[in-house]
């Protein structure tokens, strides 16, 4: 059994399990599963930035909010009653435009200063753009928009399981796209930029173009996640897209590790199921962020390349499957 076959088998097994297990769940847990798939898409969006071009973002939920509010405003009950299939692509485009705009100042900055900028963007969105009174026809103000579920091939995706499968399909599609970006010529270009911007530009690569593209694509993916989130929950409230959510998703990406599709799936499950587990054991769900923070601090001291990525490599080593590429310390990736 070689490494490629093992990879294929594990991917197929993973998909089969992801389809089968929620079929036996209660509706409430199916909705959690759908939320996990959506969170995994959001984590992938951050992977595009962090894993590929080495930029960090603390404002992914802002982009998600742009997507969600577009879908809410265009297809919501109080909105324009447009079809999901028109408003969703527009949401992705609008979020991508937001990413493009943030990408322009980000071109001049790297590392720490970019992190500050994205934090500023997230707060600016929280306190101005998404705040009640600024742009109520877009955000809905104090009355949250209520987008309804889409219809696919004449089938209305109102049941939790059908929408979960829809979200899962979206995740797989985005994962496939991201994977393609990683293995093809694009992936080599982006990795070259991540490793050394100077070397990449001496090779004749247009840094500006590629970095802007990475920001735009990342924000577009986040917008997709936001739009799906809006439709899954059935309501868009600006408070769900604030700065703390963005910090949380960035922390999950660091804990799970950047640049691995499996870590995105695990991260998505972690974000929604750990608070649920806490609630079940009678613990305040706010402990989730406490645990996340502790995990982040502890694991950066122990395994700086990210927990899931480390586990993956350990497993591969155990089964003698060899290592693909080097483990990168987080800071080398960023």
């Amino acid at each position: 059994m070689n490494a490629i076959n093992a990879r294929r088998i594990s991917v197929v097994a993973g998909i089969v399990l992801a389809v089968a297990i929620p079929a036996f769940m209660a509706d409430y847990y199916r909705s959690l599963a759908a939320l996990s798939a959506i969170a995994a898409i959001l984590i992938l969006s951050l992977n595009v930035l962090t894993g590929f071009v080495g930029q960090i973002s603390f404002c992914q939920y802002t982009f998600a909010g742009l997507g969600a509010m577009t879908v809410g405003a265009l297809s919501g009950a109080q909105g324009h009653h447009w079809s999901f299939w028109i408003s969703m692509p527009l949401g992705v485009l609008f979020a991508a435009l937001g990413g493009f705009l943030v990408g322009i100042p980000a071109l001049r900055l790297s590392g720490l200063f970019l992190a500050i900028l994205t934090l500023g963007v997230a707060l600016g969105a929280d306190r101005y753009l998404f705040a009640n009174g600024t742009w109520n026809s877009f955000t809905g103000g104090v009355n949250p928009r209520t987008p309804s579920r889409p219809t696919l091939f004449g089938y209305h995706l109102t049941s939790q399981y059908s929408f979960y499968l829809f979200a899962l399909a979206a995740f797989l599609l985005v994962a496939f796209l991201v994977w393609n970006l990683r293995v093809g010529k694009t992936g080599r270009v982006l990795r070259a930029i991540r490793e050394s911007e100077v070397a990449a530009s001496t090779m004749g690569l247009n840094l500006i173009k590629w970095k802007l593209a990475a920001f735009t694509v990342s924000a577009g993916i986040a917008g997709l996640a936001g739009g799906l989130l809006a439709v899954q929950i059935g309501s868009v409230s600006p408070a769900s897209y604030d700065f703390l959510h963005s910090i949380t998703v960035a922390a999950v990406v660091v804990v799970a590790g950047v640049g691995s599709l499996a870590s995105a799936a695990v991260g998505g499950i972690f974000i929604w199921w750990l608070p649920e587990l806490l609630r079940h054991t009678g613990v305040n769900a706010q402990f989730f962020q406490l645990i996340l923070g502790l995990l982040l601090v502890v694991q950066l001291v122990i395994a700086p390349q990210g927990g899931v990525v480390k586990l993956e490599h350990d497993l591969k080593r155990v089964f003698g499957l060899g290592r693909r590429g080097q483990d990168l310390e987080l800071a080398e990736v960023l």
Binding site: G111, L112, A115, L244, I247, T248, A250, A251, V254, Q286, F287, F288, Q289, L290, L292, G293, L294, L295, L296, V297, L300, V301, P304, E329, L330, A331, L334
Partner: peptide, 16 residues
């Protein structure tokens, strides 16, 4: 940068 990300972890801990 690794240490900076740790301060994000502390932010979450203190906040929660």
């Amino acid at each position: 940068l690794t240490k900076v990300v740790i301060t994000i972890g502390w932010l979450l801990i203190l906040q929660a």
